[in-house]
Design a protein around this nucleic acid. Structure first.
Lengths: 344, 344
DNA sequence: AAAAAGTGTGCAAACGTTCCCGAAAACGTG
DNA sequence: CACGTTTTCGGGAACGTTTGCACACTTTTT
C-alpha cells in the first residue's frame, strides 16, 4: 500500500530529456535554457511532482530536520519555545522532531541518540534536571552534530546558548516579595545540577542582601526531579512550612504549580497566607488560587533565537569557532488581586 | 561539517565479505551461518555501526515515521494524547512528527501536505475547528496514505476513528449541574463543524430532557475559532450572562479555561456564582478559582489506541476495508470545594 | 553414482536524487 | 576557415541500503 508518485525519471522519459537536465531545470540552474525550464516546470506542475526528500537527503547527506529535546511538551514554557522554534525552522525549510526527556537522564540520552541516528542536521536541547554527564553530547558534537542549548545549559561546553536573565528574574521576584513586606522568604528550586538553579539562587540571595535580610540555607529546598513526582514536592512543602515562611520564591514552572498544589493538599489553611512568586509561563495563571506573582520568560523568542543560531551553524561552510550566549530579559507579572494588605 | 559514520560497505571491506552478506547478517537472516553472524555483529558493535535510516527508507519506500496533527500542543488534552501516541510508536520502531494547526484550516492543510511530502507512513489527525473541506485528506488517503482520526473526526470518511464518549461525558456533566440544583444551564461550545460539538450538544440536551428542563437555543453559544481569540470568548460571555444562567456546561478544554478567564475579566462578581462543568484535561484544574467540575477524556489511551490502529493499517499486507470507531469513556471529576449549598 | 535438495555467500540492480565530467552544437574572433 | 568560447544537454557515478538471483559447495535422496 504505497503512493504512486511521479519521479524525475518519469518526467525525463515523458519529455525525452535526461534526468540531469530535469533535475537542473527544477532547481533553476543557469545551464538550462529558459525554454527547457518552462517545459519541465509546466510538466512537473501538471503531474504534481514532489521531490522525494528522502532521496535528496541521502544524496546530500543531510535531512533538513532538527531535533528538539525538552523535558515535556505539556508545559507552557516549553510549548511556547517550540512554537518559536517552528516559526523559524519552517521558514528556512527545516522540519522539527520533538522528543521529551520527562526529566530523566536515561530518556534524554536515548532520545538524543535516536534522533542522531535519524540523521538530524542539528539539535536544540534543554537538559533534564537529572543530567550531569553530558559526554554523550560532547561525543556527538565532536562528530560534527551542531548543538545549541537553551534554558538549561551546561557550563563547560563551547557552543551557542540561549538563556533568560535568570539572575535578574529571580532578583525581581524576590525583591517584589520583600517590598510586599515579606521577610521570611523560602526558595523552592530545581536540581542543583541545573544552570538555572544556580543563577536563580544567586538572584534570590542578591535581593535578600540588598535589603539586609539574612540568607538562611534551610529555607532553600531542592527538588531533584524537577517536581515530576508529587511526593517530592509534598516532602519539600512539609519541611518548609514549619519554618513559617511568609513568602516563597519558586524557580520553575512545574515546581510553581506543583508547590501550590501540594500546599493546598497538605495545608489548605496556610496556602492563602503565603505570598508566592515563581517562574512560570502558564497562560492559566490568572485562574490560580491562591494567586501569585509570576516571572515569565520570553519563551517564543528564546526558541526563535536558538533556532537561528542553530541554522547558522548547520549552514556554515567552515566550522564555527566563535560562540555566543544570548541572554533574554524576563518579565515580572504582579498578581492582580493583593491577598495581603501590605501590597505595593 | 558532517558525521563520519561507518557503513555496511566499510564493514564488508574490513571483514572481506560482501555488503549483502553483512546486511543479511545484521538483519539476522536464516541464510547466514552463525559463525559469520557473530563476526559481523561483533565488528558492527565495535565500530558502533548505525544503519542509515534514510538509505533504508529510500530502499523500502517508507520512512518509519508517522505524522500527528493537533490544534496545539500547549493543551493538556493533546499533549497527553501525544504521550500516548509516542508510547506505542517508539515501541514499534516509528518516530513521530508533530504539527500544530492552531485551529486554522489553512495551516492544517499546509502541515498535512508538508508531512505527506516528507513521506510519512501514516497520519493521526484531530481536525481543526475551522475545517469543513476534507477533500485534501481524501485525496491523500486515496493515494494510499493511511489515516486515523481521533477526537475531532469527520463523519463521511471511511477509516478508523477513536473518540471519547462525548454524549455520555456531556450528559454526565450536565446532569451533575442539574443535580446540584441548577436549572438555567448555558452551553458554551466549539464550532458546529466539529463532530464533538454535535455529540456533546446532544448529551447536554438529553440531560435537560431527562429532568424536564426546557432546551433553550439562546443558551447555547458557539465559538468558531475554538477560543483561540479571547475576544470571541468575551463576546460569548457577554451575550450569555444577561440570560442569568446559574450553570454553564463548556465543551472543550481551551474553551473552559478561556471562559472562566473571560468571566473573571469582564464580570468578576458573577464568576463565582455560576457553577461550571466543562471538558478539560488540564492537570492544574485543582488550582482554579472558581473551581469547576471537569470531564476528563482518556487522552493517553486515546493516543495509544489510535496509534495501534494506524500501525495496523500501515503494516497490513492488503488494503484494509473493515474500519472501526473506538469509543472511550470519559471521567467526571467533581469539584472539591462546593461553592453553593445545594451541592450533592 | 547421478540427481536433487540444502547451505552459505557474492553480484548487481534498484530506490530517487545530485553533480562531475564531457560533448555537441552554436557562436564569435582573428 | 581554423580556432577558442559559450550554451545547453546527457552519461553515469554516487549516497547506503535491501534483495532476487546465481553460484559453488556439501549433503541427502533415489
Amino acid at each position: 500500500m504505497r503512493f504512486e508518485t511521479s519521479t524525475i525519471k518519469d518526467i525525463a522519459k515523458a519529455l525525452g530529456l535526461s534526468t540531469s537536465t530535469v533535475s537542473r531545470a527544477l532547481r533553476d540552474r543557469y545551464e538550462i535554457s529558459e525554454e527547457t525550464k518552462k517545459l519541465v516546470l509546466a510538466y512537473a506542475e501538471k503531474v504534481n511532482y514532489r521531490a522525494n526528500p528522502i532521496a535528496r537527503s541521502l544524496k546530500e547527506r543531510r535531512s533538513y530536520s532538527i531535533g528538539i529535546i525538552v523535558s515535556e511538551i505539556a508545559n507552557n514554557f516549553f510549548s511556547q519555545v517550540i512554537n518559536g522554534i517552528e516559526s523559524i525552522a519552517y521558514d528556512r525549510g527545516y522540519h522539527v522532531i520533538i522528543s521529551q526527556s520527562h526529566e530523566s537522564y536515561k530518556q534524554e540520552k536515548l532520545n538524543v541518540e535516536h534522533l542522531a541516528s535519524r540523521s538530524i542536521d542539528g539539535l536544540l536541547i534543554a537538559l533534564s534536571s537529572e543530567t550531569q554527564d553530558i559526554d554523550y553530547l560532547r561525543n556527538l558534537y565532536g562528530k560534527g552534530l551542531p548543538i545549541v542549548f537553551f534554558d538549561r545549559v551546561p557550563e563547560n561546553f563551547e557552543t551557542h546558548k540561549v538563556i533568560a536573565n535568570n539572575f535578574k528574574g529571580a532578583f525581581d521576584a524576590t525583591e517584589h516579595l520583600i517590598l510586599s513586606g515579606k521577610r521570611t522568604i523560602a526558595h523552592l528550586t530545581n536540581s542543583e545540577n541545573l544552570s538555572i538553579t544556580r543563577e536563580r539562587l544567586k538572584g534570590y540571595q542578591a535581593a535578600l542582601a540588598k535589603y539586609n535580610i539574612e540568607f538562611k540555607p534551610e529555607l532553600v529546598k531542592y527538588c531533584q526531579h524537577g517536581g515530576m513526582h508529587s511526593t517530592e514536592l509534598e516532602q519539600a512543602v512539609k519541611e518548609l512550612l514549619p519554618l513559617n515562611p511568609d513568602g516563597i520564591f519558586i524557580s520553575s514552572d512545574r515546581l510553581t504549580t506543583g508547590c501550590i498544589m501540594a500546599m493546598k493538599k497538605t495545608n489548605p489553611g496556610v496556602a492563602h497566607k503565603i505570598a508566592i512568586a515563581g517562574f512560570t509561563n502558564s497562560n492559566l495563571v490568572e485562574l490560580f488560587s491562591p494567586s501569585l506573582t509570576s516571572v515569565k520568560q520570553p519563551a517564543f523568542e528564546m526558541g526563535q533565537v536558538a533556532t537561528e543560531l542553530l541554522i547558522s551553524m548547520i549552514e556554515a561552510k567552515r566550522p564555527v569557532t566563535e560562540f555566543e550566549t544570548k541572554v533574554l530579559d524576563t518579565e515580572l507579572v504582579r498578581m492582580q488581586k493583593p491577598l495581603g494588605n501590605q501590597f505595593l
